[in-house]
Amino acid sequence: MALILELAGQALQMAIVVVIAPLLVGISRKVKARLLRRIGPPVLQPYFDIWKLMHKEMVLAHNASWIYRVAPYVVFAVTWVAAALVPTYCTNLLFSWSADLIVIVALMGTARFALALAGMDVGTAFGGIGASREMLIASLAEPAMLLIVFTIALVAGTTQLSTIAELFTHSPVGLRVSLGLGLLALVCVAIAENARIPIDNPATHLELTMVHEAMVLEYSGRHLAMIEAAAALKLVLYFSLIICLFFPFGIATFDRSLGALLIGVMAYLVKMVVLAVLLPIGETSVAKMRVFRYPIFLGSAFAAAALAVFLLFVSRGF
């Protein structure tokens, strides 16, 4: 019985992340449209889009290989698993220990690898340009991410997300400059990984600066639906990471009563909506960068994370 409940808890988390993903995208788009003085599509439009794409005829290039057909499912499944392993409403779910923070970051690498290969499969210039730039962004973001992990591990003594969330909820960690710098770095990395302005523009096609959209340019129909859903899930994953690492309050930890779980779910949803509102505000206030300014953007994320690590060393005294 206990096992069944545990499994149900894990299944609930898997369901939550996949259900709310398009909603968050819808909220961001709506807010962005309002900021630009447009009315914008309904909040539920991403659900309709995915449903519509699922029922459209799929057009496949003659020379598409099995990689091209498998990649959307792989990308979706990997992103889903990674997103479902980040604690959302409750810590220490049944399978939360099967992956720590580094594993989750690496899982996103698996998804990226599959998508980049799919971009190169048909043999077009756009697919190649997208794959090449995506890998460049990843290689610039990864060192920053590792130093963020290092900062967290220095403060919490662990890379297990559940343990970190429990520690930051219960023990008086206090406000730390290092954690603030770590948050800043993580936000930069999340923006870059999710192909958001100023790195990439999710709302554009046919622009030489696009990255993510260039990779998936040839996709259509149900495959495109999978990729859109995976992109939304990736946003959920990074939002959940930010929440779990830096704002875990409200999450159900040792108290597993129904009330605590409800509070956990509500707190998680509210925080996700807040982030989904903040994202377009940030996006509308900056301009898209040139490709070769990415190193500056991600380099500053790296510098912030490195500073966080060294501040921690120094603050503990020589």
Partner: peptide
Amino acid sequence: ATLTAAIIHRFATRATRRSPIWD
């Protein structure tokens, strides 16, 4: 991945057309 593929094949259309590259 199996679950997703099963859902897609249950609810989505299977219509597929082969065509030249779009680019």
